[in-house]
Structure formats: structure tokens, C-alpha cells
Nucleic acid binder design. Structure first.
Length: 897
DNA sequence: CACTCCCGCCAATTA
DNA sequence: TAATTGGCGGGAGTG
């Protein structure tokens, strides 16, 4: 009976929790919310039972099988029956049947109410996204199952997926430890790395691409050796397998979940169709692949997808291909993560004050004494060392010796090979299946190859979904560039996630509006000299930006955009220790900063200066607030951001970084030279400043701005919220815009963007240079954001857009920009607008056009600039190469970190 | 009919 | 051996 009661009670509890959740997790994400409301729903179920129980029996008479089942269930819950059963219903009997049934039906929770996704939400609602490191939350399976009113089996489904992401870890029998999302970004990063190794480009390119395969294969080979590094991820998997029989565990939902996530992280488009995922995940695959197996895999993927959806990491979408529409999932979580989580630390929006600790803690869940054993098996992925140990263990172990050569590594290798095969298989299949498809895919690859590719559309893998379509393009673009960016960029947002995720993603993808826009905007530099930008001006703008993150697109694009960022930064800073955080923030800040800095130019006017820091709050980002925190972490890599924050709030933090700040410093840093700039971008991730390059170098008249640091950090951060960042904008002096090219940033808003971001920046920059070269005229760059593809959401954006378009120039940021653009009040103000480059207007597409040009330029030195066209080609190649290289570097770098 | 995916049997693992 | 985990696939909802 007690139990019974509990269950009853439970319903309520969950409800309570939910609200909380919202705030925490989703808060912002509108998407989910819809669901949330539902929560309540469930509770009812239990009730039904009672009454029903009897009824059911009756019913059973009516409908045989079903009823039987029902009975069983009921039987199990005798108590319930007893409780209410008494009710009049029983009386009904014969007649009752009908009525009963009806009631029954009414009460009977619909299938949706019982969905794993909903269940998972309820589950998640019970725990804080960012629990204090100090407190450990243990989860009792039985308890949770009873509270949520489901069988334990279902809880396992949830927990297994969560465990794969290290949100929980098993401590002991029936006991799990809740870790929250503190380590999520780190975990994702690991998965991404692992994914690269395993799936490598396969996914990147799009599953289908042959090209990819090739690369893929190569990569893998290479990777294999490296595998050691990989292990991290693998470990996780391996652990399980290693324990003893791999057989069972290998198939485990846990591993599947990780692999599934990897596919997203590796995918440029961030969209993975179920069938492809299933094919890839079926290890042996190939040939045999019976249909049944495939079906089973798909079933499991749905299970996993439901949980991931509840986590706000993916969302369901449809991809249309020639054949038709296919179910697919799009990654809406953080794309990149800062490598160092440490610094990044995501704090929980709400509470987390503690910075560092969490992370550490997070990493190793296990601490717990008791359950360790298991732990070892599963959890560990943390450090490589452990992993290795594990491996060793494994190897030594009895299991099939041959299986793995080197323990986990081996596994990975194997997997890789399998994957490769699979990939190939998949491809083939796909090709077969649809000739068309093949075409599509091909196209994509090609585009990728081309480096910039002109057509976004082509890029897109799947034409189908409207939604996605847009995105894809952008992505495609990114990839090229991408290399630069490394991993970081986006990730940030993710971690935070709870609410954010959506936000960032949303902004990017859909709206594009985001945040950045405003800030990012453009820079104009009249003169040749270089500038360094720092957070100075910022305040206004900056402040605004921050908010963005939180909100997402919702808030009005304009104002908000800027502020949000700021906010975040602040919050982060404030909350956490000043030092570390700073970096993260930078990106956003930079952007903002840049803008501000530019302001001087007049062009850039911050839109609402007044907004000032706090604006954020005001703006309405209610959500944002919550969000911010998270974002913050990640985001700001660069000092600038912090500065901004500081400015607003207090400069305290800034101390270190702030010092950099721009204004003053400018002179210092800037390495003059175009090349430098580019380099800087690449290399200096952290520094907040921006550099302005004079024309002298190669460019005749034009100047560039870069954020010095941004490159990595900035970007990454940006990703979260705003994306962009990094590249700031450049303005060219002279004249006329007319001549110059402009750069548009591609706006990619696409969701994918996240990944690409990094690349973007590079690309963006490139573009600039080109333009400049070409004409000597001044160029403007803005980050624009294009955006928009689908985004739609924000109408507000549109209005602005027009203006923005012009700006497209700022390629780099596009992404970020994109976000920005919407909002970007600034833009409006700016002269830039004037420029308006052409096309940008069209949101999504524009980017494409833009893209091509840009990339090259940036990277190349001035001299090279000479031919834009030529450049492009070269760049394209180079870029690519570079990108790949970069990637590697990045990865490597990160890993080392 | 196709897509989702709930449900719970029952085997593998663990205690 | 009992209990816990969790793979798996039938087949029920949903659109």
C-alpha cells in the first residue's frame, strides 16, 4: 500500500519538479516546453488504474487479449484496485463495460503520455542540471520507478543513455549517482574526438559521401594508431565491454548512445537520419544486415533519441530525399566545446558558484567508494590513463584475446574498421537505393571539396526538409573553413544547456538572429593603422549581447542580442572566479567589443548603448538569465568578454584579461600584417583583443580587424550563444564600397554551424582580405548573420535583415553573425548598412554566395590576394587542407590539453 | 500503411 | 540461486 501511495504522491512530486526543470533545463527552449506541460498528465494514470482495474477485468471479457494484459498489470497493482476499485464502477459490470471502457480509455494514459521521452523529462526534472559538486545525488532505481510510475525496465533505458553521457554513473546495484551536466561538454568533446577517429569524415561529409569514405578510410588508418588518444571515448564503451563479455555490452544501449552522439558531433550538418545511423551502428553490418536487425537497431535508436531529445541535445526533423521523407534527428546541443573544460566550467545557471570543482568532480564520477567496480567498467573515460589501465585489464582478461588487441583501443579500431565498412556499405546501399540520393550526397561532398563551394544548396544533403535545408548549406560551408576553428566553438553553449541549447541552436539555426549580430557588426576603419579592439566600448553593445544566449532568439533580436552576451559573461565572471572564465567569454565580448571599438568609426554604433549592461536583464530575457550562466562559461574564452562583463558590472574580473583591452592596447598587439592577422586568429584564441591590420601589407587600402584571440576561444564561445565572434569585421577605408567585394558572411545560421564555426572564422577572415585586395576599396565586414534560413522565428529579424545583408561581409562570424544579424541594431546604425552588400538579404542563401569569396582571402596573405579568384581556388584547396590539418591540430591540441 | 516506440519476455550478469 | 540488468522484437498507437 505504501508503495501505492507513493506512486500517487509521486505524480505530484514530479510536477513540482517540472517547473524547476523548466527553469533549469529548458527554460528557454520553447520547443520542449510544450512537452513539459504535459507532465501533469502522467499522474492521472495511476488513478485510472484504480478504477480501471476492476473495469479492466470486466473489459477483459469484452476484449480478450488486451484485457488480459491489462489485468496482469492490474494484478500487479492490487492495491490500487482496492483503493478505488470499490467505487461504483464495479457495479457496472456488464453495462459498465462500455462505460468503463470509456472511462478507462479516458484515463488511460495515451501512448504519448507514456513515452520514454516524457518519462525522461520527468526523470530529469527531479535532478538539477548542475548539482553542486559537493552534494551527491544518488538515484535509486526502484524509487524512481515507483515515483514515476513505470517499470524499472524503462528507467534502465533512460539511465543507460544518461550514463553514456556521464550525466549519471552507476554506483552500486540499483544505485546511480547523478552528476548533472557539468561534464557534459567534456563528454561531448571526447565523443567528438572519438567520433572523428571512428567515423571521421564519414559523417562529416555526410554520411553518404564517398569521398568521405575515402578520407574516412585514410583517416581511420591514421587514427588507429592514434587510437590511444581516442580511448577516452572508447573507454567508456570499452569499459563495459571489457568487463567481461563484450557480447552483451557491446550492443549496449550505452554504447549505441555514444556512437549515435558521435555521429552528430562528427556530422557537419548535425543531422543524422535514422536509417543511416542504424546502418552505421550495426556493426557487422554490411552484408547481412538483416532487415530485422535493422529494425531492432532503429527501435533502439528511437529509445536513445527520445532521451537525447529530453536532454535537449537533439530534435526530430525530417529530411527529404528523393525517395521521400526520412526521419532524422538534428543536433541542437552544443557543438563545440572548449577544450578545457576546466576553465569553461559550466556552471549551473542557477547555482553553481563553484567553478572549478565541479569539473573535477564531474570528471570522475566515481569517486564513490562502493560502486567503483562498476564504475571502472563503465564510467571511466576520463583520463586516458585510467583508460589504458582498463584496457590492459581487459586485454589481460580472459575475454577473447584476439578481440582486442589493445583493449579499448583495439575496440575502437575495430569499430573504426567496422564503421568504415559500414559506411561503405551504407553508401553503397544508399547509392543503390537511390540513385538520387547518391547524387545528393555526391553533391555535397563535392561542394565540400571545392572548398567553398558555391552552392549551398548543393551542399545540403538533404533537400527535403525545409528546415534543414537551410542549415545544411551553411554547414557545408563551414566545413571548409572549419578547420580553423577547432573544436571549441560551439561547445560551449551546449554544456549549459539546459535551457540554452535551444537557444543557441535556435538562434543559429533558425533565426540566426542571435545575439551577435548587434555587436558583431562591422568595423570600419578608415585609416590604415591597425587597431586592436578590446572590449572597451562595449559596454553597450556588449552587454546586450549576452542576453542573447539566454534567450535565444526570442528576445527581440536587436536589442537583446548584444546584451545577453554580456550578461552571461558577467554572470559567469562574477559567479565564478574571474580568471578562468574570462577566456570563455571573450568571444562574445570580442564581437561586441569589436563593434564597439569600431564605433568610433561611427559606423558602428552600438545600437543601444544605453542598454548597457544590464539591459540584458531588462530585455526580457528572462530565460536568458538562467541561460547565461552556462553560456558564459563556454563562451567566453577570450578576455574581451569578460571585460565586457566587467565593464558592465564591474571590471574587477577583468583584471587580467581586461588589461588587454583593447583600446589601450591596440597598438601593441596588432601585428600588422595581414598574415599576422590570420595567424592570430588561428592561434591566439584567448586573447581578447582584436587586431586591426593596416592595409599596408598587402592590401592596399584595406584594413582588417581581427580578434586576436578569438580564434579558438572566441569562436567557441560564440558558438554558444552567439556565435560568432571571432571574426570581427573589418572595414576598409577607402572608398568605395562599390568596388569591393564584400564579404558576406555566410550566414550560416545553420544549426550546424556550430561546428563550422571555427572554420568560419577563418573563412570569414579570408574573405575579407580578398575583397580588400580586389578592390582596394574599403571593405566592410560585418558579421552578419545571415541567417536565417529558416529561422523564421524572428520576424524581427527580418526587418533588420535588410540592413544586415549588406554587411554580410563579415563572413567569419557569420555564424555568430547570423545570430547577430537579426538583432543587430548596430548594424542598422552602421554605415555598413550602406554597403549592404548585395545579396545578403536572402538570408540563407546568401551565405553561399558570400562564402566562396571570402574564404580564400583571409588566409592568404595580401600578396596572394591579388587574384581573388585564383585565391579562391587555392584557398579552397588550401583551406581544405588546412582545415583538415587544423582539425587535426586542433584535436591534438585539445587532447593534450 | 509507415513510422514510432511501448511493453515485457527472458537471457546475461551480478550479488 | 535470486535479483538485477538490459537485449530484443512483437505488435500496439499514431498519423
Amino acid at each position: 500500500e505504501n508503495i501505492f501511495d507513493r506512486s500517487r504522491m509521486a505524480p505530484k512530486t514530479p510536477i513540482k519538479n517540472e517547473p524547476i526543470d523548466l527553469s533549469k533545463q529548458k527554460g528557454c527552449t520553447p520547443e520542449r516546453n510544450p512537452i513539459t506541460p504535459v507532465k501533469v498528465i502522467d499522474r492521472p494514470q495511476p488513478d485510472p488504474w484504480t478504477p480501471t482495474a476492476n473495469l479492466k477485468i470486466l473489459v477483459s471479457a469484452a476484449s480478450p487479449d488486451m484485457r488480459d494484459r491489462e489485468k496482469k498489470k492490474e494484478l500487479f497493482r492490487p492495491i490500487e484496485n482496492s483503493e478505488q476499485s470499490d467505487t461504483p464502477d464495479s457495479l457496472q459490470y456488464d453495462i459498465v463495460d462500455d462505460s468503463t471502457v470509456d472511462e478507462f480509455e479516458k484515463q488511460r494514459p495515451s501512448r504519448k503520455q507514456k513515452s520514454l521521452g516524457l518519462l525522461c523529462q520527468k526523470f530529469l526534472a527531479r535532478y538539477p542540471n548542475y548539482p553542486l559538486s559537493t552534494e551527491k545525488t544518488t538515484i535509486s532505481l526502484d524509487e524512481v520507478a515507483s515515483i514515476l510510475g513505470v517499470e524499472r525496465r524503462r528507467i534502465y533505458d533512460i539511465v543507460n543513455v544518461l550514463e553514456s553521457l556521464h550525466l549519471v554513473s552507476r554506483v552500486a546495484k540499483n544505485q546511480y549517482c547523478w552528476h548533472g551536466r557539468h561534464n557534459l561538454s567534456q563528454t561531448l568533446k571526447m565523443l567528438q574526438e572519438a567520433g572523428q577517429l571512428q567515423y571521421g569524415e564519414l559523417m562529416t561529409s555526410q554520411h553518404k559521401e564517398q569521398d568521405l569514405e575515402y578520407k574516412f578510410g585514410e583517416r581511420k588508418k591514421e587514427a588507429i594508431p592514434d587510437s590511444q588518444d581516442r580511448p577516452l571515448l572508447d573507454f567508456t564503451e570499452p569499459d563495459c565491454s571489457s568487463a567481461s563479455a563484450n557480447s552483451r555490452k557491446d550492443k549496449s544501449l550505452r554504447i549505441m548512445s555514444q556512437k549515435f552522439v558521435m555521429l552528430f558531433l562528427v556530422s557537419k550538418t548535425k543531422i543524422v537520419t535514422l536509417d543511416i545511423a542504424a546502418k552505421i551502428l550495426i556493426e557487422e553490418t554490411q552484408d547481412t544486415v538483416d532487415h530485422s536487425k535493422f529494425k531492432t537497431k532503429v527501435r533502439r535508436l528511437y529509445d536513445i533519441a527520445n532521451v537525447l531529445t529530453s536532454l535537449g541535445l537533439i530534435k526530430k526533423v525530417h529530411v527529404t530525399e528523393e525517395r521521400g521523407r526520412k526521419p532524422a534527428f538534428k543536433w541542437i546541443g552544443p557543438v563545440e566545446f572548449p577544450e578545457k573544460t576546466d576553465e569553461l566550467r559550466e556552471h549551473s545557471p542557477t547555482s553553481d558558484p563553484l567553478p572549478g570543482t565541479q569539473r573535477g568532480a564531474c570528471v570522475r564520477y566515481q569517486t564513490s567508494g562502493p560502486g567503483k567496480q562498476r564504475f571502472t567498467r563503465h564510467a571511466s573515460f576520463n583520463s586516458a590513463q585510467p583508460c589504458e589501465a582498463t584496457r590492459r585489464k581487459v586485454s589481460s582478461e580472459p575475454n577473447s584475446p584476439h578481440q582486442e588487441k589493445q583493449a579499448s583501443i583495439v575496440n575502437s579500431d575495430e569499430n573504426c574498421s567496422k564503421m568504415i565498412n559500414l559506411a561503405a556499405v551504407c553508401r553503397q546501399k544508399i547509392d543503390k537505393d537511390t540513385g538520387n540520393k547518391a547524387c545528393d550526397t555526391k553533391t555535397i561532398p563535392n561542394s565540400a571539396k571545392n572548398s567553398n563551394m558555391t552552392l549551398p544548396s548543393s551542399l545540403l544533403p538533404v533537400p527535403g526538409d525545409s528546415d534543414f535545408c537551410v542549415n545544411p548549406l551553411p554547414q557545408a560551408v563551414f566545413p571548409v573553413v572549419q578547420a580553423d576553428v577547432p573544436s571549441f566553438s560551439l561547445p560551449v553553449g551546449i554544456s549549459s544547456q539546459p535551457s540554452h541549447p535551444s537557444t543557441p541552436a535556435a538562434s543559429k539555426t533558425e533565426n540566426g538572429k542571435p545575439t551577435l549580430v548587434p555587436n558583431q557588426p562591422f568595423l570600419c576603419f578608415p585609416s590604415s593603422s591597425l587597431f586592436m579592439l578590446c572590449g572597451g566600448l562595449q559596454e553597450n553593445n556588449l552587454s546586450e549581447p549576452l542576453p542573447t544566449a539566454g534567450d535565444l532568439g526570442n528576445r527581440s533580436a536587436e536589442a537583446q542580442a548584444v546584451p545577453p552576451t554580456v550578461c552571461q559573461k558577467r554572470s559567469s565572471h562574477k559567479c565564478s572566479s574571474p580568471s578562468a572564465p574570462v577566456d570563455d567569454e571573450e568571444p562574445a565580448a570580442k564581437k561586441q567589443m569589436l563593434e564597439h571599438s569600431f564605433l568610433p568609426l561611427s559606423l558602428v554604433v552600438p545600437k543601444k548603448p544605453s542598454e548597457s549592461p544590464k539591459a540584458e536583464s531588462s530585455p526580457g530575457n528572462g530565460c536568458s538569465a538562467a541561460v547565461h550562466p552556462e553560456t558564459d562559461h563556454l563562451d567566453f574564452a577570450s578576455p574581451a568578454a569578460p571585460e565586457v562583463a566587467n565593464k558592465e558590472s564591474a571590471k574587477p574580473l577583468g583584471s587580467q584579461e581586461q588589461g588587454k583591452q583593447p583600446q589601450n592596447k591596440d597598438p601593441d598587439e596588432p601585428p600588422p600584417g595581414n598574415e599576422h592577422v590570420s595567424k592570430e586568429n588561428a592561434n591566439q584564441p584567448f586573447q581578447p583583443q582584436y587586431l586591426y591590420v593596416q592595409p599596408t601589407a598587402g592590401l592596399s587600402s584595406f584594413n582588417f580587424l581581427f580578434s586576436a584571440n578569438q580564434a579558438p576561444g572566441a569562436i567557441s564561445l560564440a558558438a554558444n550563444q552567439l556565435p560568432s565572434l571571432s571574426v570581427p569585421c573589418v572595414m576598409v577605408p577607402s572608398a568605395a564600397l562599390a568596388s569591393f567585394p564584400l564579404v558576406c558572411s555566410p550566414s550560416f545560421t545553420s544549426p550546424l554551424s556550430p561546428v563550422p564555426d571555427g572554420s568560419f572564422s577563418a573563412a570569414a577572415s579570408t574573405n575579407f582580405s580578398m575583397s580588400s585586395l580586389a578592390s582596394s576599396t574599403p571593405v566592410f565586414i560585418s558579421t552578419t548573420a545571415v541567417v536565417t534560413p529558416k529561422v523564421s522565428p524572428a520576424p524581427s529579424v527580418d526587418p533588420q535583415q535588410p540592413a544586415h545583408p549588406a554587411l554580410h561581409l563579415s563572413p567569419v562570424l557569420t555564424r555568430s553573425c547570423s545570430a547577430v544579424k537579426l538583432d543587430s541594431p548596430v548594424c542598422m546604425g552602421h554605415p555598413v548598412t550602406l554597403l549592404k552588400l548585395q545579396q545578403p538579404s536572402s538570408a540563407p542563401l546568401t551565405p553561399k554566395s558570400i562564402r566562396p569569396a571570402h574564404h580564400d582571402a583571409f588566409f592568404k596573405t595580401p600578396g596572394s590576394l591579388g587574384d581573388p579568384v585564383a585565391w579562391k581556388k587555392n584557398e579552397g584547396n588550401q583551406t581544405r587542407n588546412a582545415s583538415s590539418v587544423q582539425r587535426r591540430l586542433e584535436i591534438s591540441s585539445t587532447s593534450p590539453d
